[in-house]
Structures are given as C-alpha cells and as structure tokens.
Computed example of a mutant assay.
Amino acid sequence: MNFLKKIFGTSEKPTDSWTMFSTSKKEVNDLLVSTGQLRIGSDFLQIDDYPFQPSIAYGQTKILVDTIDEIDIESYPPTIKVKDELIFLTSEKRDKIKAFARRNDLRTVRRPDIWGWILEPFLDTEFTKETDERLTRLLNEYGLTKETVDLIRKEVKTQMLKYNFHTMLWEWGGLGAEDVLKAMRTKYDKEDFKEFYDKVMKLALSTKKKEK
C-alpha cells in the first residue's frame, strides 16, 4: 500500500507515474551497484570497484591511514572521512574495521544522518505530518531550510522511487548518502554527477548551527 501511495502521489495522472517507472533492466542493475570490495591492510584501506568516480577511492587507490581524518564505525554503512568527502565501507566487515581503527588509533565520531532525514519520504513506510515536522526541525538545526530540503527532494524524487521500489529493494528502515549517490549516478553525466557528488558530501558533513 505504501508503494502504491508513493507511486500515484508522484503525478496528477497515474499513467504519468507509471511511465516514470519504465526503467530498463540495465538501469535496475546499475541502481543496485555494489560499493566494491574492501581490503584492509595494516596501515591502509583499499576498495576494488568503487562505483563513485569523483571519489579518491575510485580506481582502487590505497587510502593510507595518515590521510584518514576520522571514522564513523556505527553508521550504516561505516564511513571514513578523507579531506572533504566520506568514503563508504562495507558493513559486513564492521568488526575488522573496528580493529583497524583501534590498531591505528583513528579518531572515531558519530555523525548526524542528514541524508537519512532528507530521504525519509522515499522509504516503504508512511511519511506522516508529524514525521515531516520533526525532520524539518532537525534539518533546520543544521542550516537546511524547508525550502532547501523540498528542492533537494524534488531533484532526487524520481530516481529514489526507482531505486527503492522498481528495483524491489523495498527499504523501510533507512536510506542515506550512499543510496542517493547510487540512484543519481544512473541519471547524470560525468560533469553533473561530480557537481551532485560534491553537494552530497557537503550536506553529509554538515555541523549543527551554533546558537546565538
């Protein structure tokens, strides 16, 4: 039922909504792309087949421990921060990532789930007025006005609905920065995706506004 509400809520005419979901088999496969295979060395991380070309992790580059600013082990998936970007690791190796962080005395943090809050309307669950108001307040604490959030949601709406529903992912617990990058990489060309990638990183690394 939530699936049907979201589809038929995307257009004034149901036929237009269904047209939006005429996704090729190739795009479905691309939407569900793997974030690569993580290799953990004594003092480096390396991800084979990382899918996001703007990232320093793209092309199997070794990420040396002294270039890692911080790590969020508890996020889903775990992430490391290198300069102005987050790099997504695999949750399947969370324990080994913890050991790597401890062994190399990496700074650990717990980041707010900015993109999770932005993408909540695209989950396979009801998005209530109360939820909308709560998330609006949270996002405003990080400098994001309702108008800005509405524009972002409008930009990613079609791709996120494809990503979560046409692929039959049916995610209801949470979507995040990794998911929106997977969704939008099938739409944008190289230049536009680089611009979008930078925006995703900037928002993902937002900090709470200081109270005056």
Rank of each mutant, 00 (worst) to 15 (best):
P14N: 06
R103D: 15
K154I: 02
F127M: 06
K26P: 07
I152W: 03
R137H: 10
L119I: 09
T128H: 09
I118Y: 03
L119V: 09
S55L: 04
A177V: 02
T90D: 00
F122D: 04
L135C: 07
I73A: 03
D43I: 01
H166E: 11
L175H: 01
I68M: 08
W170S: 08
L123F: 04
R134P: 02
G116I: 05
M1P: 14
Y76G: 00
K182T: 03
L4I: 13
T79P: 01
S91L: 01
K162H: 07
S11A: 15
S11Y: 05
A183T: 06
N2V: 09
D150E: 14
W172N: 13
H166F: 14
G9H: 01
I80W: 01
L38Y: 01
R110N: 12
K5N: 15
R102A: 13
S17G: 15
K98R: 15
L139E: 08
I73W: 00
P77E: 02
T145L: 03
R107N: 12
K209E: 14
L31H: 06
K157P: 02
D113K: 04
D48W: 03
L169I: 00
L205C: 10
P14L: 04
D43C: 02
T108V: 11
K208D: 08
W172E: 13
K157I: 04
L38W: 01
A183Y: 00
Y58D: 05
K212S: 11
K212Y: 08
L205H: 06
L203Y: 15
E130Y: 07
N2L: 07
F3K: 13
T207Y: 09
Y163T: 12
S24F: 06
T158Y: 03
K83Y: 10
W18G: 01
E171W: 01
L151E: 13
L161V: 13
R110V: 14
Y188A: 05
D16V: 14
F196D: 08
V33S: 12
M160A: 10
K13F: 13
A177F: 03
L205F: 06
P51Q: 03
E126C: 04
D192N: 13
S24T: 15
E27A: 14
I47P: 06
F122A: 02
F193S: 03
L169Y: 06
W115M: 06
D30K: 08
V156F: 02
Y50S: 10
L138D: 07
A99T: 15
K190T: 10
L205Q: 09
V109G: 07
T90E: 00
R185P: 10
M20P: 00
